Simulated scan of single mutants.
Amino acid sequence: MKERNFARIRFELQARPVVVSRVEKTSEGFISIVFSGPLLAQFNSLSFDDHIKFIFTNAAGETVRRDYTPRSFDTATQELSIAFALHAHGDASDWAKNAQPGDSAVIAGPKGSMVIPADFDWHLLIADTSSLPALARRLAELPADATVIALIQVDYDSDRRLAEPTDTQQISWAQTHQQVLRQLETLELPAGEGFSWVAGEHAFALRAREILLDKGQPKTLMKAAAYWKKGAADFHEKI
């Protein structure tokens, strides 16, 4: 087994006031919002599944905090992009639907990054709508010739928006969590040493992790997290 360095990097926790610079509805299920602010000059996000606290005021005047993944950060313009999944109900989704340039919010974090090496023989990425922005960032940051298998659940066909896959990337889309799990159950893991990343709804992520362990994927070469849980608000948990 090749020795690889999983770098854990800590940052000073800082709350940064930001304003909306641009808003783009990228698909039926997502809105991309670009934020700017002078304190973003010190912003750091070194891993694709870092988490920030997005702090905003809802329609009732209450302060709300939600976890999000930085989709991208432009160091030249000091602009931070976040992809918001749209739901029928939810304070953050409602805020994003109504966001206009000049609207204010606060970005806190990330507290740190765990940088996963890119030189594995293969990468397995399993996501649902909530974690698709993190998966998309990972694909963008991996070498173009990296061997990648991605199994993704999304709510709408128009959400199937990723960069054009390369010859070494296999991307499978599904409409339900169960369809993704069935795809995973029949998947034969490639030869060599690979890393598996799973994120999404709590029960879905737990089951995907169990399937991978049954297939012989070592715990040390896997990262799983629940980005949300049915019936719970503001839920995030490492698995």
Rank of each mutant, 00 (worst) to 15 (best):
F73N: 01
D214R: 08
E193T: 14
E62C: 06
E141G: 10
S47A: 12
R65T: 11
I82M: 05
D119A: 12
K238Y: 13
L184W: 07
I107P: 01
T186K: 05
G102T: 07
L213T: 11
A146T: 04
R8C: 06
A226W: 00
F30A: 02
D157Y: 12
E141V: 11
F43C: 07
Q175P: 06
D94W: 05
P117L: 10
M222H: 05
F11T: 09
V154Q: 04
A174C: 03
E79K: 10
A233H: 11
L39K: 07
V154N: 12
G109Y: 03
L139I: 09
D157W: 10
K2A: 15
L184I: 06
R4E: 07
S27E: 09
T63W: 07
I52M: 07
S36W: 13
S130I: 03
A76H: 15
R65I: 13
D49V: 05
A163W: 11
E12C: 12
I126M: 10
F43V: 12
R207G: 04
D159K: 05
D91V: 15
F48L: 07
P190W: 01
A7E: 12
R4P: 12
Y68I: 02
F235T: 05
V64C: 15
A92M: 06
L13S: 06
A203K: 15
S131T: 01
G231M: 09
F54V: 05
A233T: 13
S21V: 14
D49R: 00
T129A: 15
A96I: 02
N44P: 13
